[in-house]
């Protein structure tokens, strides 16, 4: 074990962390928006689309993320050509983001839907009888309760996303793992263990930060849920 070498290569990884952070941030936000759409379709049970969503969810659940990445990487040009846009290949980073958004749209809707269903239906009826508009119902009744219930699941989804994003090097994006492979080959594979141990520690630290955030949110969430009259056991479920 060569710890000096590990310290030597550590600063080089800081230069690619923005790439990983950008991919994660864009995928998370876009994935969240997509998942809201998916959740609405599933909760409202909109006829044909509801069936489509079942297929979509079961597909993303059963195919490995690595496979989905490759399907997006090779599939996007084919799809675009079908619409008459002639492209021969797509930027790996675009394919990676598209894939992670597609995957998280399904993954996060599995968090949002139960959270929505946990809200007492009687409240909607009460709001109706008070003459609330649809937007008022959403902003004053649904949102304040949905967010604290869904928050722990969402931070977990974030940690999953960070882990999944470690696979995008396979289609040629130079993120943390991509750089690790480059550094590993620079020394002709002499220090592979050191390189990947460094990477492991970087990911570990990132995950730990988010785990602490979960705990922080959880404290606040309990307060909010208590205030809203949920017992802690209900909120945890």
């Amino acid at each position: 074990m060569n710890f000096e070498y590990m310290l030597e290569i550590l600063p080089r990884f800081f230069s690619v962390i923005p790439v990983t952070a950008l991919i994660i941030a864009v995928s998370f936000i876009a994935g969240l928006l997509l998942s809201v759409g998916v959740t609405i379709i599933r909760v409202k049970k909109i006829p044909v689309f509801n069936r489509l969503m079942d297929i979509y969810l079961s597909f993303t659940r059963s195919a490995p993320i690595l496979l989905q990445l490759f399907i997006f990487y090779f599939g996007i040009p084919v799809l675009l050509q079908a619409f008459g846009i002639a492209v021969t290949n797509v930027e790996p980073i675009v394919a990676a983001i598209a894939c992670l958004v597609f995957y998280n749209g399904a993954f996060m809707s599995e968090i949002l839907r139960p959270a929505y269903l946990a809200i007492d239906k009687g409240q909607f009826e009460a709001a109706d009888s008070l003459g609330y508009t649809g937007w008022q119902k959403f902003s004053r009744i649904t949102m304040p309760q949905l967010i604290p219930i869904a928050l722990p699941g969402m931070t977990n989804a974030m940690i999953h996303l960070i882990h999944d994003s470690s696979l995008i090097f396979a289609i040629g994006v130079v993120d943390i793992m991509g750089l690790a492979n480059i550094i590993g080959s620079e020394t002709y594979g002499l220090y592979q263990v050191e390189v990947f141990l460094t990477v492991a520690v970087i990911y570990w630290v990132i995950s730990l930060i988010f785990e602490q955030l979960v705990k922080l949110f959880d404290k606040r969430r309990r307060k909010v849920l208590k205030f809203e009259g949920y017992t802690s056991s209900e909120g945890a479920g």
Binding site: I162, H163, D164, S166, L167, M177, A180, Q192, V193, F196, L197, V199, A200, Y203, W204, I206, S207, L208, E211
Partner: peptide, 15 residues
């Protein structure tokens, strides 16, 4: 356990 859950599978695999 925290290390295993905090690191992506692919990194552990290479390691």
């Amino acid at each position: 356990k925290s290390f295993i859950r905090g690191t992506p599978n692919v990194v552990l695999l290479f390691l």
